[in-house]
Design a protein around this nucleic acid. Structure first.
Lengths: 192, 192
DNA sequence: CGATTTTTTGAATCATATCAACGTACGTGG
DNA sequence: CCACGTACGTTGATATGATTCAAAAAATCG
């Protein structure tokens, strides 16, 4: 049931069976069908979601109705509107399912109890957010310093499985490009 | 001596005098003159630096020799090549002083000992990196969804003190624009 | 004060966005 | 299972707006 979740944990820090039992007692599961929302702008984001199966995206919508994809999440990743989760303020992002999904959810209160009972879990959590920070840093460097071509290539290099599973216009949005431009980049690349 | 540092800590979680004494025993100080490097690409980043006084920047240099500013740090902020710090791999960023600086440094080994002796410090650390992650997230949203004009306005809104203290071409680099473009944006804005 | 760095300005160029139209795939209900 | 409708991807023509390059003006530093 929680196999993938604990596999990810144990990759970084090893947890005993008892610790795992404590942690899992604070998790709940949720299934989501394709196109269903996990979170809508304005709602308070009550949970962090771990993806056991499926694919999701977090995105914002500006005044003109244009979507901007902030993040994708596949199996083994987590997704949330972390600002809303931490502060209790209304969410500024939407999160929805790109495929049918199975999720593990943890609330803020649950997380804090787990931190208290299993200190290693806080260490894990710190390492995980540090990793997410570093990934985001790389993305900024890529947005600032690469040409569009390189940006696309860089993306399909780092996330080959995303390109295969996600509609092209969402990839375009993630990269800050129009769908037309992505289409043309792909054409240019396949010409070689 | 460590006033600003502990002020920042106590804003989030309150530390006792003993705890503060333990933490400060693991810190070292360093002064840097304007234009001096704290870190050069290729070196291993041994420390995280807390800025007591002054201003610094972290930036990368691409094959063409173009600088891309990843981060500024003023009083009360921290700066590091976190990837290099965490992994021990050679740094991919440069860090140098924009003004004369006074820094507090902590090594990885020291940080881990402090985590063990003062668990609250790990909680603080997790909250701090979470805040940095959220700030970076906002920056990505701004890079993806705002026009250049809005991006500049947004920047001077969030960081009015940086604009005053940092050369314009570095701000341009941070925003992913050419210096000429920033100059023109400023002209347009002052015309109003 | 002179030298170097930084900022400003102008003109030409280039890349990407935009708009519109067409082709294709997809899933949904009959 | 097929036909229809909608969503998605492609292609071309045009327009926009930022970059590039060059040079002058302004600011900073020793």
């Amino acid at each position: 049931m929680y196999d993938l979740f604990f596999q990810k944990l144990n990759e970084k820090i090893s947890f005993t069976a008892e610790e795992q039992a404590i942690i899992s007692s604070y998790l709940t599961t949720k299934k989501l069908r394709k196109k269903q929302y996990l979170l809508q702008e304005g709602d308070v984001c009550k949970t962090i979601a771990f993806v056991q199966k499926g694919a999701l995206r977090a995105y914002s919508v500006n005044e003109k109705g244009v979507e901007n994809v902030l993040q994708f999440a596949l199996e083994g990743w987590i997704i949330s509107d972390l600002y809303s989760f931490m502060t209790g303020e209304p969410a500024t992002y939407y999160i929805d399912a790109i495929e049918d999904c199975e999720l593990l959810l943890i609330t803020k209160a649950a997380q804090e109890e787990v931190f208290a009972k299993v200190p290693k879990y806080e260490t894990y959590s710190r390492m995980q957010i540090t990793g997410a920070y570093l990934a985001m840093q790389k993305r900024i460097t890529s947005l600032l310093s690469l040409s569009l071509n390189e940006r696309y290539l860089n993306f399909i290099n780092i996330y080959p499985n995303i390109v295969q599973r996600v509609p092209q216009h969402m990839v375009a949005s993630y990269l800050g490009l129009t769908p037309e431009t992505v289409s043309r980049i792909r054409k240019r690349l396949s010409a070689k």
